[in-house]
Write a protein that binds this DNA or RNA. Structure first.
Lengths: 357, 357
DNA sequence: CGTCCAGATGTATACGGTTACATTCCAACG
DNA sequence: CGTTGGAATGTAACCGTATACATCTGGACG
């Protein structure tokens, strides 16, 4: 293999020009070209001009990958998700993207992982492509995720508490309790709960919030807890169960909006009026929530904000000598009509156009 | 600067082990390690074993960036979008992600670009980080986008026709015509249209489909075309205009579902029954479409499929000697109740649970 | 027993940048 | 006019991997 001749004209090739091409064209060294690129103010004006026009003429675009190898910084964060379906993930991606762009970072997204093996493979595959990772593995044991992450790669766990690891989560417990407070203030004491799937972190915490609040008001969980898996059909079935069993419940708290909407369907079929005969509330504030009848009282989670903060945490985790921190993002109680504390209006469009402003 | 000593034990550093560390530990050369990595079947079994266990012991993970620089392949595609809000982009990302993963590719996402300058900056910044690009620049002149893309980087334009450039688009014209056919078969002749924003490709093509079909049935567009910008409020306003002016329209075809839903709200306020007094149809089949009352007849676009195909096109565009091709993804007419060809049932849940199966 | 050959392994360069250190240049100063 | 010193620029060593080519190894063969 012949040694490369730097002074020759650019070789014909489909790949773009390099610093060396620019250097020889401008009659300077590669170092100078690099210095102009990263505009350190050490190059004299006339030289800068020569280099700039050489870059122009050759249509030079820096090679990000090569730069990364040299600087050991990719300016990219990875976002590893179990799935990409639905509003949650889309908002999450958007939040991270916004924060990343603001700091000049790129975003590498990877979704659709059914198990940790697949995730793990991806997590390995991105070494050298990202400076840090945001990982969401809701069904996995928090401590394990942490130890399975490549050492030295800053990582933030999403919706997942773990000692000795960076993480960020929605304040599910407090949110559930605030919903319980609200229902309590409306006079509800026996509040049935439709829980999310076993092993899901969010589900567990929301359940805990409900249970704690219920206990403090002196009501036993017995007969008030119903199985669910976050799907509409689960909520539908649970509502039927709640109405057919002897629960004395006056309100239904569903672990997420999808189940709440399923419950609403069931109650309508059973001719149970909402909220007059039974209050129904959900969790998540999905876009649909304001359109169902009656509009659903729920907990709003600013998911994009979650994404933004997660990104900031990754940067923080990447700083030398920083120690793991757990961040919690607050939620907001959204009172609509399904809980009975607000008169029915039936105008979804109003709220809709407001939210667009 | 001292020359690196390959035979020494791995230096302490926060960055992971390299091929050299593995090589010296296994008592072989870096070339052999590399060969084991890319398992070419040229290394003898005992050697493979030594290398493998050395990798294990050092917790070695290949450095993707370095590998890319060497092989000139990143196994990454870039997805450049104007925005990340909403179902469309989320599904698009999902579609591309699925297709990419299947082929062992990573996905670099970039959204939230307000103008072409921002996009252009990103497109440049990803040189050396991606093997190809999927670009959506709906408001930009197709020919221009193409010429502004870095030469030699395979790129596929989304929803954007351009001669001499790879592109893929939804078959808006045919879809709009099929909707018109359907309305025609229900006896509608004077069909009002609420258009999307100027300069938007989808909007223009859907409008064309409507106009052509209308013309062929001998009806003038005069008085039947209404302004809109794809927002609910625009549909809301347009419906008011349609009802107050002397149009004789028996059906409203909105350029997208959001406007159709806005129109439904307006008609309800005006006590116009849908579909008895006025048929309303949309375009896109957003999730909400089946939940509004009455459920909306619309055009379903398999956006994830669009994404998958776009990815395949990028790979094709990257092949040596391939010539630009334009791909079109088909749509599906979804008949619900708002057009009047189906009896009202009021059970959204049925369709919902079916779609989950 | 020397030769030859194929298969296994090693050496060194390239990928496209950045940057520590070396060198050059030139004006100011003794 | 020789020195000196700081600014501008050049040289070459890296970043971590892949791979063309060189070298080595050992068995088959004459």
């Amino acid at each position: 293999m012949t040694k490369r001749d730097d002074t020759a004209a650019p070789r014909t090739r489909q790949h773009g020009a390099t610093v060396r091409d620019v250097a020889s064209r401008a009659g300077v060294s590669v170092a100078t070209v690099s210095r102009v690129l990263n505009d350190q103010n050490v190059v004299r004006e006339p030289t800068i001009g020569r280099v700039r026009s050489a870059m122009e003429e050759l249509n030079y675009v820096p090679h990000g990958g090569a730069r990364s190898l040299s600087t050991r910084r990719t300016n990219t964060v990875g976002l590893v998700l179990p799935d990409l379906h639905g509003e949650f993930f889309s908002e999450m991606i958007r939040g991270v993207d916004v924060a990343a762009r603001r700091q000049g970072y790129h975003l590498l997204v990877s979704g659709s992982h059914s198990d940790w093996n697949e995730m793990s493979a991806v997590v390995s595959a991105v070494r050298g492509r990202v400076d840090g990772l945001i990982v969401m593995a809701p069904e996995l044991d928090a401590e394990n995720v942490h130890t399975h992450l490549p050492a030295g790669l800053p990582a933030v766990l999403l919706n997942c508490y773990a000692t000795n690891a960076w993480s960020i989560a929605v304040d599910n417990v407090r949110a559930a309790r605030s919903m319980m407070d609200h229902l309590g203030s409306l006079g509800h004491r026996r509040i049935a709960y439709i829980r999310g799937p076993e092993g899901n972190n969010d589900a567990a915490e929301r359940l805990r919030g409900w249970g704690e609040a219920l206990g403090e008001s002196g009501v036993s969980q017995e007969k008030l807890l119903f199985e669910g898996d976050f799907s509409e059909t689960a909520g539908y079935g649970a509502a039927y169960a709640i109405m057919s069993e002897d629960t004395d419940a006056t309100a239904i708290f569903a672990g997420n909006d999808a189940m709440a909407i399923g419950a609403l369907c069931a109650l309508r079929e059973l001719n149970v009026r909402v909220p007059e005969d039974m209050a129904v509330v959900g969790f998540d504030d999905i876009p649909l929530a304001r359109f169902v009848s009656p509009p659903l009282t729920t907990i709003s989670v600013d998911i994009a904000e979650l994404g933004r903060r997660a990104f900031d945490l990754v940067l923080e985790a990447g700083e030398e000598g920083s120690t793991p921190r757990h961040s919690i993002v607050p939620t907001r109680l959204v009172i609509r009509e399904s809980c009975g504390s607000r008169p029915s209006s039936g105008k979804a469009l109003k709220e809709l156009s407001k939210s667009e402003a």
